[in-house]
Design a protein around this nucleic acid. Structure first.
Length: 271
DNA sequence: CGTGTGCCCTGACAGC
DNA sequence: TGCTGTCAGGGCACAC
């Protein structure tokens, strides 16, 4: 379920227990997720100290004191379990520190784990082509105007494109388009300047609200058997097929398919 | 190049 | 109670 807010929440949660700690043991329970685990992963991580955790787009980064950074992606179903009471059959990678255990659990195995040099992390191919962070200074109307110029593809699919904005997924694209009053089928290149001007705070607000939500539910994760990666958010359109619009209750939420995935929007207030 | 399609994988749920 | 079909928050390879 992880989109940007879930990854951010996960990274913050991990940091509380992992930052500054020495990794005593790393166990791989299978050879790969989406890709094979890096061959040197266990050797490099074992005995290393964690010196920082951060997020880029939907990737979590764990910096080690050996000049390497472990990069994880949670795919569709990944999450970190902290101090699990019982092993799960989908715990594919397990890390032990002196005081805690961290299990990367991912039933669908669409996630990934990579190891890269910390110094050159920005030129890692998966990072080099990413667009600006939605919560950073790079997301501006000028950037969007330029990135969407001439696009005939729908704005919904444009916003899912990580090269245009990094970190948006299906839920928050639907929610942001609803907040900004933009029809998901509108061509990217035809979204007007006033709409783009509304879209940026719409994106920032919906992501910030979710992170805040996740952050508050992190309290629950303080328990030794806590799990990371899930939190409840109240959505305005996502999954609300047939229900009245929260802005204008004469509008109805409708579900359509775009690029093989579902989009929810209000038939009345999104133009 | 831009755009569209199908697939990787397991689990949850609806309907019969 | 099984079975079957559908869908799921992501990203990539591939075809045109």
């Amino acid at each position: 379920m992880p989109e940007l807010p879930e990854v951010e929440t996960t990274v913050r949660g991990l940091a509380r227990f992992l930052d500054g700690e020495r990794i005593e043991r790393v166990v791989l329970n299978r050879p790969n997720l989406r890709r094979p685990f890096p061959p040197e992963l266990v050797q490099i991580m074992t005995g290393a100290r964690v010196i920082g955790l951060s997020r880029r787009a939907k990737y979590g980064l764990i910096d080690l004191d050996r000049g390497s950074t472990m990069i994880f992606h949670l795919g569709m179903s990944g999450r970190w379990r902290i101090d699990p009471e019982e092993p799960d059959r989908h715990d594919h990678l397990v890390i032990d520190t002196a005081d805690h255990q961290f299990a990367l659990c991912d039933p669908r195995r669409f996630g990934s784990v990579d190891l890269e040099a910390t110094e050159t992390i920005d030129s890692w191919p998966q990072f080099a082509s990413l667009g600006p962070e939605p919560l950073g200074p790079g997301l501006t109307v000028e950037h969007l105007k330029a990135a969407l110029k001439g696009k005939v593809q729908s704005i919904k699919l444009c916003l899912l494109d990580q090269r245009i904005i990094a970190g948006l997924g299906n839920i928050y694209v639907c929610e942001a388009l609803w907040r900004a009053g933009i029809h998901p089928r509108k061509a990217g290149g035809k979204v007007t300047r006033p709409q783009l001007t509304r879209l940026i705070p719409a994106i920032r607000d919906v992501l910030s609200a979710s992170i805040k939500d996740g952050g508050s539910s992190l309290r629950d994760y303080a328990a030794p058997d806590g799990e990371l990666g899930y939190f409840a958010t109240r959505f305005d359109v996502y999954g609300r097929t047939g229900e009245p619009c929260r802005r204008d209750d004469s509008g109805k939420v409708r579900r359509i398919a775009q690029g093989g995935r579902s989009t929810w929007y209000c038939t009345k207030c999104q133009k």
